[in-house]
Simulated scan of single mutants.
Amino acid sequence: MRRLVTFPCLGETLAGTLDAAPGTTGLLIVSGGNELRIGAHRGMALLAAAIAAAGYPVLRFDRRGLGDSTGRNEGFRTSAPDIAAAAAFLREQTGVTRMVAFGNCDAATALALFHADAGIDRLVLANPWIVEPSGDLPPPAAIRATYAQRLSSPAEWRRLLTGGVNFRRLAQGLATIARSRRTQNDLARTFARSLASGSPADILLATRDHTAVAFLDAWHLRHLTALHHRDSDSHSFARPGDADWLRDRLLDALSRD
Score class of each variant (00 low, 15 high):
Ala21Leu: 09
Pro154Ala: 05
Tyr56His: 14
Pro22Val: 03
His115Val: 02
Cys105Ser: 13
Asp244Ser: 08
Ala54Phe: 01
Trp129Phe: 14
Ala88Ser: 15
Arg122Ala: 13
Trp219Ser: 04
Ala196His: 11
Gly163Glu: 07
Leu47Val: 10
Ser234Arg: 13
Val124Met: 02
Leu111His: 00
His223Gln: 06
Asp19Arg: 03
Gly198His: 11
Gly95Lys: 12
Phe61Tyr: 12
Gln93Glu: 15
Met44Ala: 09
Arg169Val: 08
Ala52Leu: 08
Ala20Cys: 11
Leu187Trp: 01
Pro133His: 11
Ala107Lys: 01
Leu250Ala: 07
Phe215Ala: 00
Ile51His: 02
Phe102Gln: 03
Ala145Phe: 05
Pro57Asp: 00
Thr225Leu: 01
Asp202Lys: 06
Thr225Ala: 12
Pro240Asp: 09
Leu123Ser: 03
Leu170Pro: 00
Ala85Met: 12
Gly32Met: 13
Gly11His: 08
Arg98Asp: 01
Ser79Met: 14
Asp202Thr: 14
Ala80Asn: 07
Leu251Trp: 00
Ala142Met: 04
Pro81Ser: 13
Leu221Asn: 10
Ile203Pro: 02
Ala188Arg: 01
Ile83Asn: 11
Gly71Val: 15
Asp19Lys: 09
Thr17His: 03
Pro154Trp: 00
Ser153Met: 08
Arg182Asn: 06
Ala155Met: 09
Ala171Ile: 11
Phe215Met: 03
Tyr147Lys: 10
Leu47Ser: 07
Asp217Gln: 04
Glu12Met: 06
Ala145Ser: 08
Thr225Gly: 05
Ala112Lys: 03
Ala53Leu: 09
Thr225Val: 15
Pro22Arg: 05
Ser152Trp: 01
Ala175Lys: 12
Gly32Val: 09
Leu170Ser: 05
Thr70Val: 10
Glu35Lys: 04
Ala145Leu: 00
Arg222Met: 04
Leu174Gln: 09
Asn166Gly: 03
Asp233Gln: 12
Ala175Gln: 08
Thr25Trp: 05
Phe114Arg: 03
Ala126Gln: 10
Ser180Asn: 13
Arg64Tyr: 06
Asp136Tyr: 00
Asp186His: 08
Leu125Lys: 00
His223Met: 06
Leu36Met: 11
Ala141Ile: 09
Ala15Lys: 05
Asp121Tyr: 04
Pro81Trp: 05
Ala86Phe: 13
